[in-house]
C-alpha cells in the first residue's frame, strides 16, 4: 500500500520481518520478470525495420506482452531523418451544390496538442497496412462528410516538400504553393 514511513523503533518485532521486495523469493520472481521485461523493451525498437531475424522473432514472441502494455514502439523519433509532411486536402460537396474545401491539419487548430493529433492522422495515413488504404481513406471521408453535411467527398494527398537552405537564402518561403505536390486519393459518396 501507499503508506508512509513508520518509526522502526516503534514497529513490533513481526513488522521488522522482511516484507515485499525484502524477501529473497520475491526478489527472485521480480528479477525473472525484470529480465523478460528488459528483453521486451529492447526487442521492440530493435525489431523496427531494418531489423535482424533474431530481433523480429523475439519481438514476435513477446508481442502479447508488449501489445497489452502498450510497449510495442520503435522510438525512431525523426529517424532515419526528418522528412516532408503528408497532409490531406478535401473537397466536400453538399446536396445543394455548395462546396467546402479544407486542409488537414489546419494550422489554426488550438490547442497545439489537438493540431498535432490531426497532423498525426494525415502523417500516419501513408503507413496504412497493405489492403487497408481504402478503408482508411473512407473513414476520413465519412468524418468529413458528417462534419460538413456533405454527400460527396474528394480526398487529395498533399506532400509538402522541404526547402533547402539555399532556397530560403534566395528568398523562398516554407509555405510556397510550388512546394506542395498533390495527388487525388479518391472520390467517396
Amino acid at each position: 500500500m501507499n503508506g508512509g514511513d513508520v518509526d522502526d523503533r516503534a514497529a513490533p518485532l513481526d513488522a521488522r520481518r522482511p516484507r515485499g521486495l525484502q524477501r529473497r523469493w520475491v526478489r527472485r520472481v521480480v528479477s525473472a520478470w525484470l529480465v523478460l521485461h528488459l528483453v521486451a523493451i529492447v526487442a521492440s525498437p530493435a525489431a523496427t525495420e531494418p531489423a535482424s531475424e533474431l530481433a523480429t522473432d523475439v519481438c514476435g514472441y513477446l508481442m502479447p506482452y508488449l501489445g497489452a502494455l502498450y510497449l510495442d514502439h520503435g522510438y525512431h523519433f525523426f529517424a532515419p531523418e526528418p522528412v516532408e509532411s503528408t497532409l490531406i486536402r478535401y473537397v466536400a460537396e453538399r446536396k445543394d451544390g455548395s462546396v467546402v474545401e479544407g486542409v488537414i491539419p489546419d494550422r489554426k487548430t488550438k490547442p497545439r496538442l489537438l493540431y498535432h493529433r490531426y497532423f498525426m492522422l494525415t502523417e500516419r495515413m501513408s503507413e496504412a497496412p497493405e489492403g487497408l488504404e481504402e478503408l482508411w481513406q473512407e473513414s476520413y471521408a465519412r468524418r468529413i462528410a458528417q462534419e460538413h453535411d456533405a454527400v460527396k467527398v474528394t480526398l487529395f494527398e498533399r506532400i509538402h516538400q522541404l526547402p533547402t537552405m539555399e532556397k530560403v537564402r534566395e528568398g523562398g518561403r516554407l509555405d510556397e504553393p510550388e512546394s506542395y505536390d498533390e495527388e487525388e486519393l479518391g472520390v467517396f459518396e
Partner: peptide, 24 residues
C-alpha cells in the same frame, strides 16, 4: 536509428526539422 539517415551525417537533419512548416 538516426545513423541510418544521411541528413544526420551531413549535418542537415536539424534544418529539415526547422524547415518543416507543419511542425514550425
Amino acid at each position: 536509428a538516426k545513423l541510418q539517415g544521411e541528413a544526420w551525417w551531413n549535418g542537415e537533419a536539424m534544418w529539415r526539422a526547422f524547415a518543416n512548416y507543419e511542425y514550425q
